[in-house]
Design a protein around this nucleic acid. Structure first.
Lengths: 197, 197
DNA sequence: CCAAAACACTAACAACTGTTAGTATCTTTT
DNA sequence: AAAAGATACTAACAGTTGTTAGTGTTTTGG
């Protein structure tokens, strides 16, 4: 069999990781076999182990890469003094929407398959998520205190926002219905505008 | 080993099905073994087959039972002439919220594990879901036409509503944060009240 | 209290799992 | 063109999977 890549789409490991993300999303992590993945990449199963350490490592790579991107974006938005707190929240929601639109495989694996992470990775992941949610809550709390956001339950609102964007999964199956931009604006109007005081 | 049940919690098959729902939610369908399920129920794996036909049958049972309950409720609400269209929508959202609060195992399995249904069950399931979503859209469309609901994208709103309630999964892990009633009211205010014209 | 039905058990199956060892081939560097 | 390194291959492993066959035991109905 031929080589995995011609040096175009990044390293060999990267090609494998992205193929894994697609398969993990479609078939789920436990029922994606190394032979499935190998076939998708054009190689025998054993050959994958010249590039990766284990199947679990692939899941870790996907989940923590995505988690880090969300955290990095939050960091930036928190530090951006040109935005008030409602705008900070809106900016983060828009980021989530664009991730769900453009990086469906990785984001869905991070959401739905992270429970298959081994320890201690799973605990670490859940902890990072808790912290992330807490920081979003704090944006809302400060927005309320400063009179920029209506009196709401910050925890419930964050829960709702982070879950609502998961609907984009279904949009991907029937894209003709509505454009990506229309979808984003509709979601922002529905879930963020109503929070303005 | 002793018998599965003492005639209290319904039939033996029902006990198995509910145990399966919990395991399928926690561990995922593919990585829940029949030996896990048997152990949970207090029996050897082979004994399960005196009550069920296969592992797949359990998943079918769970998914279609839940789907039928949602459809039945929608039927009722559609036929209830004492409600205007915004109220019909709110009533359905409240039903979803209460299902996510009180029937987490079965509802999560229906949402997250239905992709493991065998054909033709999987196709049937997806079709039923499409029809269900379409009927909710129609409630919104009529509400707009009658001036009871703001001008919104019905498809995007339904997607958002049905996904937002999935956040309740995380609420279950940290119940102390907020009561079930507070959560429900917060979600309704956040996602339904804003739709009023 | 006996026959029938319901239900649990042990043992085993073929298929599939992630992974390793050992070896061959291709690519890059010297 | 030879040496080194990267990467592919085949073959095989030990463990797990859902499920069946065959048999024994408990409960139910007459």
């Amino acid at each position: 069999m031929g080589r995995i890549t011609n040096r175009k789409n990044g390293s060999r490991k990267e090609v494998i990781t992205l193929a894994a993300a697609r398969l993990f999303r479609e078939k789920g992590f436990p029922s994606t076999g190394m032979r499935d993945l190998a076939g998708d990449v054009g190689v025998e199963a054993a050959s994958l182990y010249n590039h990766i350490r284990s199947k679990s490592e692939l899941l870790q790579e996907i989940c923590f890469r995505v988690a880090n991107e969300f955290t990095a974006q939050l960091q930036e938005v928190e530090a951006d003094d040109s935005l008030n707190f409602l705008e900070k929240l809106e900016s983060m929601v828009r980021f989530h929407i664009s991730m769900w639109i453009n990086r469906l495989d990785e984001v869905m694996v991070t959401n739905n398959e992270s429970k298959y992470l081994e320890e201690p990775y799973h605990s670490t992941f859940l902890n990072e998520r808790r912290v992330y949610v807490r920081r979003l809550e704090q944006i809302i709390e400060e927005g309320i205190r400063k009179g920029q956001i209506r009196q709401v339950q910050p925890y419930a609102v964050v829960l709702t926002l982070l879950s609502a964007v998961r609907g984009i999964e279904y949009w991907h199956r029937t894209k003709k219905n509505i454009s990506a931009n229309e979808l984003e604006e509709s979601m922002i109007v529905h879930m963020v505008n109503g929070l303005r005081k």
